[in-house]
Amino acid sequence: MNGGLLFYGSSVFLMVMGIFIAITGKHLIKILLGIDLFDVGLNLLIISFGYVNGGTAPIFSKYPHIFKNVVDPVPQALVLTAIVIGVAEMAMGLAIVMKIKEKFGTCNIAKLKELKW
């Protein structure tokens, strides 16, 4: 029972299920949900890399501070950026889904003949 099993395992599980849903999903919104799950799993993995045993959050309430055990702040800044990009990508994809629904009348990729070639 250790943290590696919990956090690495959860994030890899989320990534795997995300790819699986995105590959085998039939509805366009379901595919986007799979991509969203992949996004969350990847963010969790990057944050887990930055954890230091017994560390505290990189926020100091006193100054001058003592340099003690602190978790890595760089992955947190990266993930903060990635989450906001994720919602922008999601909104764009949903707009395309709505346009497809209006033009072809269906969101089921098995019935969308124009996607096949």
Binding site: G4, S48, Y51, N53, P58, D72, P73, V74
Partner: peptide
């Protein structure tokens, strides 16, 4: 990447 056993170094240590 063993969980939680990587001490801060490089830019991260400088930022903190």
């Amino acid at each position: 990447f063993p969980f939680g056993e990587r001490p801060l170094k490089g830019v991260a240590a400088h930022y903190v």
